[in-house]
Amino acid sequence: MNDTISFKLNGETIACPVSGAGTLLDLLRDTARLTSARPGCRIGRCGACTVLLDGEAVPACLVMTWQLAGRQVETVEGLQDDQDFLVVRDALARESALQCGYCTPGFAVSLVSGIRHQRSGQETDLGEAIAGNLCRCTGYGGLSRAIQRLTDSCCREDAAAGNDNDFSGD
């Protein structure tokens, strides 16, 4: 029953053997050597291993490899040309929203997912998008300012594009 599955990792189709209930996190780090996803707790409670699975931010330590068949996984290594990522990255850097930075790729992925949901109107509050990511260094002050910057620029873009989304929340 334990066989090989194939899925897309950062745009490339890869095939890999499934080992029992092994996780996507270990696959990324040990096999694919993509170390931006980090094992902060291994039980889905810190967000340091957050990746995009079919475009949605999830903790890689709770995704088992057998669940990946036919799906798409993206890490920050694969988002380097993604416009949403670049906007998030810029906001985080300009607001010094990080100190040690160990958790930051996870925050960035959650925020990428967050601004996409903000655009589609599904969830307007970027603070909710990072409710599952823990940062121990900053006290979240820089993250709060980065979110403000992202929300402002999102609203500006919308105004420029003539969109009339109401961002006052639901």
Binding site: G44, A57, G132
Partner: peptide
């Protein structure tokens, strides 16, 4: 929104 974190809710 009070139930786990957003990533966990997706799984």
């Amino acid at each position: 929104n009070l139930l786990a974190g957003p990533g966990v809710r997706r799984l």
